[in-house]
Design a protein around this nucleic acid. Sequence first.
DNA 1: CTGAAAGCGCTTACAG
DNA 2: CTGAAAGCGCTTACAG
Lengths: 344, 344
Amino acid sequence: MPPTPPTERRRRPSGRITLQDVAREAEVSPITASRALRGERGVAAELVARVKAAAARLGYVPDPAARALASARGTQVPVLVPLLSNALFVDVIEAVHRVLLPHGLQPLIGVTHYDPMEEEQLLRSYLAQRPAGVLLTGFDRTEAARQLVAASGIPCVYLMELTDAPGVHCVGFSQQDAGHAITQHLIERGRRRIAFIAAQLDPRVLQRAEGYRRCLRAAGLYDARLELLSPQPSSMRLGGELLEDLLRTRPEVDAVFFCNDDLAQGGLLAALRLGVAVPQRIAVAGFNDLSGSDQMLPPLTTVRTPRRAIGEVGAGMLLSLLRDEPLARSSADLGFELVVRGSS
Amino acid sequence: MPPTPPTERRRRPSGRITLQDVAREAEVSPITASRALRGERGVAAELVARVKAAAARLGYVPDPAARALASARGTQVPVLVPLLSNALFVDVIEAVHRVLLPHGLQPLIGVTHYDPMEEEQLLRSYLAQRPAGVLLTGFDRTEAARQLVAASGIPCVYLMELTDAPGVHCVGFSQQDAGHAITQHLIERGRRRIAFIAAQLDPRVLQRAEGYRRCLRAAGLYDARLELLSPQPSSMRLGGELLEDLLRTRPEVDAVFFCNDDLAQGGLLAALRLGVAVPQRIAVAGFNDLSGSDQMLPPLTTVRTPRRAIGEVGAGMLLSLLRDEPLARSSADLGFELVVRGSS
DNA sequence: CTGAAAGCGCTTACAG
DNA sequence: CTGAAAGCGCTTACAG
């Protein structure tokens, strides 16, 4: 007897296996197949099993475009970050991918270059695609962007910063407290003339600056002339240059808090080059605990920030929102950790 | 007289502005509007102008899902890279975004973690979405993955490596020649016992190794005992550890070619820590010219690789493919550049 | 050069 | 708990 396929498998012109094919194979209607596959409750267990088996047998892959068109919402999740060249955000993004992909959600990376206008543009075009949800960095955006998000009704989780505003879902840590903590550490090490060197000057850097000021003021040690703020993008080179500037113009300085590890690493290397002893002559601290900071000479004291966890928890929160699950908390403070190494 | 809108703007239940609305506003049929907006030739210039004006006035944003469903192909462009934590690929990705987004194409970042199986999985799910095109890293993949790409008929451009295989579109540079060139440089600096330290051992690293061997063999200087290959992921820490190993077990070494700058930076810092003079005692060279290499002590000699250009040219090539434009070349060799600094 | 018809593959109400 | 009908917003042939 010649072998016959379990059922007649007619392929449509496109060659694609559709929900119809699955339904036919399982001998149910397409709607039931759709419901079974999506795990909608209220389908007889036996039918669910039959449909799932049929789908597996045929190698059915749902068409996201058709789903997006038919339902109110697609499977994309725009993730807007300032920069990809900052390892910080790459870590966040990797974590987001890891959580979202297994749930059939597709992260869409958008880069704003720290420009609220650019973010607004991106948001406009992404929201027009009716994404499932949105992940945004921080709270600093144009009024129009805020409106767009609100009007869309699309679930949104904010990363990196925290707020108490009701109904706002966010996951991060207190940038200000972290800036305070590392400054406090330098004071406890006996430092008195503590400088702050920063670049980029995005909102989170300014929050760290605020923590630095609050701490030094409380200790009666604040001196505005020890703040070196550059709007240029952060880099090791710039860190070295700014440290040189500082040592020349404020020779009395005995510690430096760099707002980011790349600046601090550059500072450490410049100190080495100039023969400035760290931590004897000046103590050095960074922020974020980026790759390489533990390899410096001396190893860099810094603040370890929970960026992977931010991505994971943020994506998880969005997932709950999409499922209308009750949230344990709408604002997740993931904290930070002081990492004391040889440079302070 | 009360103000009246230019035409009656009835919104559909979804609230969305559709092609229909634009067509009505421009007083043409939806098909003509569609053609005008997509810049399909064969539409009267006047109508095109009218449609575009109407679209702008209404703030029309086309629905990618509907477009994808109706046409054979969507607007997504999966970009598969091994790792996001390697700055190399982040640069490639940023360049790809810059080129693709203005053309209405949406890059989808996929991370394979150097695992062909993982790549195959990603490919399977991405191709089921009928993307407009695909960007893949290198040529090392499973047979099934190869088949998937071929069977899909979806335009594909390969990044980072080159091949002469007909009909294959690729953009990169010769990893082997680059490995050869930096080794040659070390020979020309008078070095005779040149080691190779590598991690990750992905296909491109192995190609660089081949260039290193070819060069040393030609000079009669090859010594297999000077190769240190570790399958671990690349990092500064590992670079330092491997250099220490090397100095202990092969004290006769007088130069090291690290397969990547992060390893080399770690090596340089380890040398500093150990009091090993660079370049007097050993010359050090890296690969890729990553951020920070110019800040090292001494600054790192390396090979600058054209990763931004690879992203740009690769995306541009895909764009041409999508438009059925004739390609100037199907294989673009973007070359590399020796950057000689203090470490050699 | 322009348009009327049909359909892409799925899901949302609406019935039973 | 299951299904027949209609439609999401666009584009692809097919006519004229």
